[in-house]
Simulated assay, not measured.
Amino acid sequence: MNDYMLILASAALVSHLLLQQQPLSRLRLHVCGLASALSIALGVAGGQMLERLVVVPWQIQDLRLFLLLPWLGLLAWGVPQVLARLRPQWPTRHLALPLLGNALLLGLALQAAGDNATVLATSSTALVAGLGFWLALALFDDLHQRSQQAELPAALRGLPITLIGTGVMALAFSGFNGLFTQ
């Protein structure tokens, strides 16, 4: 359940940051989703490699966060740059700030650093979390578009309705908990 809430709360906040810029095209939303999925997959895998190659041999577990933050900052800057070079027509401008503020990436990187899972298991988990984040961004964009057209009280417009939607989605996604373990 914590993973679902981490994904959804992070997607809600990143979505809120992105949706403040009007108008937001579907292409920009999907480019942000792709950039987030790539940075999550690379960040978690790189965080686990930092843990195994630097933190554990030098026994500096207390400095784990200070090693992960520059790595994640480099990814937040580098992934949009690489996407801009591969596809110049894609709107990758100003994507570094939402990627840098992605709490999901930091949380999953810290969680994976503490686990003793294989690199393949960690990478597949990170890839699925990145794809789930992309899906959550698309769902929040749909929620935002529908809430713009609905008659809502002034106190619920913007971030409050997004956070209420986050809670409802977390309840819906918690139904998937344990579905694939049987």
Rank of each mutant, 00 (worst) to 15 (best):
N2H: 05
Y4F: 15
L8R: 03
S10I: 07
A11P: 05
V14S: 09
H16K: 02
L17S: 10
L18H: 00
Q21R: 14
S25P: 01
L27Y: 02
L27G: 04
L27N: 01
L27R: 14
R28G: 04
R28F: 01
L29H: 06
L29N: 13
L29M: 14
L29S: 11
H30D: 05
V31R: 01
V31Q: 08
S36Q: 10
L38G: 11
S39E: 12
I40M: 15
A41K: 03
G43I: 09
G43K: 10
G43V: 08
G43W: 10
G46Q: 09
G47M: 04
G47A: 11
G47L: 08
G47E: 09
Q48H: 08
R52G: 08
R52Q: 15
L53R: 14
L53E: 13
V54A: 14
V56S: 05
P57L: 04
W58C: 00
Q59W: 08
Q59D: 14
I60F: 01
L63T: 02
L63Q: 15
F66M: 12
F66A: 15
F66H: 05
L67H: 11
L69R: 10
P70Q: 09
P70W: 09
P70I: 09
W71F: 14
A76Y: 00
V79N: 01
V82G: 00
L83V: 05
A84V: 00
A84Y: 03
R87A: 12
P88L: 08
P88V: 10
T92Y: 07
R93K: 12
R93W: 01
H94S: 13
L95C: 07
L97S: 12
L97K: 11
P98H: 10
L100E: 05
G101N: 11
L104P: 00
L104K: 00
L105A: 10
G107S: 07
A109F: 03
L110R: 06
Q111G: 02
A112E: 05
G114D: 12
G114S: 09
V119G: 01
A121T: 15
A121R: 08
A121Y: 07
T122P: 06
T122Q: 11
S124D: 04
S124E: 13
S124T: 15
S124R: 15
L127Q: 06
V128K: 02
V128D: 00
G130L: 00
L131T: 05
L131M: 11
W134V: 02
L135G: 11
A136T: 02
A136H: 04
A136F: 02
L139M: 14
L139G: 06
F140N: 06
L143F: 09
H144Q: 05
H144F: 09
Q145H: 12
R146P: 02
Q149C: 05
E151P: 06
P153W: 11
L156C: 07
R157Y: 01
P160H: 08
P160N: 06
P160E: 06
I161F: 12
L163F: 14
I164G: 03
G165P: 02
G167P: 05
L171W: 14
L171S: 07
S174C: 10
N177Q: 13
N177V: 15
